[in-house]
Design a protein around this nucleic acid. Sequence first.
DNA 1: CGGGATGTTGATGGCAGTCAAGCTCGGTGG
DNA 2: CCACCGAGCTTGACTGCCATCAACATCCCG
Lengths: 234, 234
Amino acid sequence: MGTASLRCLDCAVRDTALCGAADEEQLAALSAIGRRRILAAGQVLTWAGDANLLCANIVAGILKVTASTASGREQIVGLLFAGDFVGQPFSEDSTVTVTALVESDLCLYPRERFERALGDAPALERALLRRTMAALNDARERMLTLGQRGAQERVAGFLLDLADRTAPCTRGGAVTIDVPVSRRDMADFLGLTIETVSRQLSRLKTQGAVALSRGGRTIFVRERSLLAALANPG
Amino acid sequence: MGTASLRCLDCAVRDTALCGAADEEQLAALSAIGRRRILAAGQVLTWAGDANLLCANIVAGILKVTASTASGREQIVGLLFAGDFVGQPFSEDSTVTVTALVESDLCLYPRERFERALGDAPALERALLRRTMAALNDARERMLTLGQRGAQERVAGFLLDLADRTAPCTRGGAVTIDVPVSRRDMADFLGLTIETVSRQLSRLKTQGAVALSRGGRTIFVRERSLLAALANPG
DNA sequence: CGGGATGTTGATGGCAGTCAAGCTCGGTGG
DNA sequence: CCACCGAGCTTGACTGCCATCAACATCCCG
């Protein structure tokens, strides 16, 4: 237990992850059932429809959560970053597929044992509830986007979200975004096609809101306020 | 407390609502802080952006949860029925607007007191966590619809959901659906326009999947399997 | 019976999807 | 070092679906 909680106390996401809500004893319990695993880029953690055996905290990396149509069309219903929680405690089977977008480092827990740990740690369960509610809010915001906004609004809004993630403080100025996903993933996230995403990015460039480079994976935001205006036309 | 829990024990949604997870003592505590309120059709319970002061259980009726664009376009991000929970414990302000679609009967709790009650009743908090996760799953399924499906698939899928809600058992046969919402609300729910919804319903009629009546508010499903096929083209 | 709200149908246009070339960049091997 | 290759990205031409605008029908309620 000593070494176990030591490992956790050293963890890169000790404060930002769910574990941040755990005291030392609870942390030791978590540590006892958790094990680290590296996922290669493109590797699938859980498949939709499979038995729901895993929960995890993301130590490093980026994962996508996807739902798919019978005809194979894919929608990214969530993006997960370091510190985020993955999984569905108290559910028998998983309804979504979780895939690593880049090499990712996870702290895995067997689902049922994790559930027992939650029962013994009210603070943990409370933290998970708050996170789940936050995820629901995100999902609702995205429903608004997918149902009501046009292509340019979606792309501009996505870039703004990325900018906030990488540089939350910068207000009116310029930011460099390292887009962590391919055009295909951007399209699947936004409910558009690759071509439409590409065209809208080009349009943002000609409008002077951004500059592109390195195969489109680095985006320089020239005028954040302009981008905001395009993301939310009045 | 005797009369209080008596009121609750009589409640129409005693078993289906969140309270179903509460024992008698916890129920008494809830009862002590809850009060009933009738909302007229069209009346708003909470506005997006306002302070988040309320939680509630729905005793009877139907509510919509909406998010809006700066330009006034509205997306219904959730529909709530008898037994469902409304509100966002542990959040300072509400991000969505909740409106009654028909006259509705609610059991209201002041948010902060409800949070305290949750802290004293782990079973309640557990139940709320499960519901929130279920809501998140719903939201993700709807993201898939809004992002990837065509108009006919959306409308057919909506009808199937309604059919499942009113007659979960009927498998291959025919069901009569009493559509509980206007065309405008259907459109806002599905991310379409009123006209498109109407046209797709007419199309479903000519295709023999449904029959319409009473100003379109009653829909007779002729071939559930056909409807399912149209909702999920392979 | 009349009038307003709600729903349907029609004509048209625009935005995004589809199909199809090119282009860029990074990696590999000669 | 450079030519080549392939994956990912961009751009173009065209189509099709859904939104928009507008007229008409139907239902409901007094």
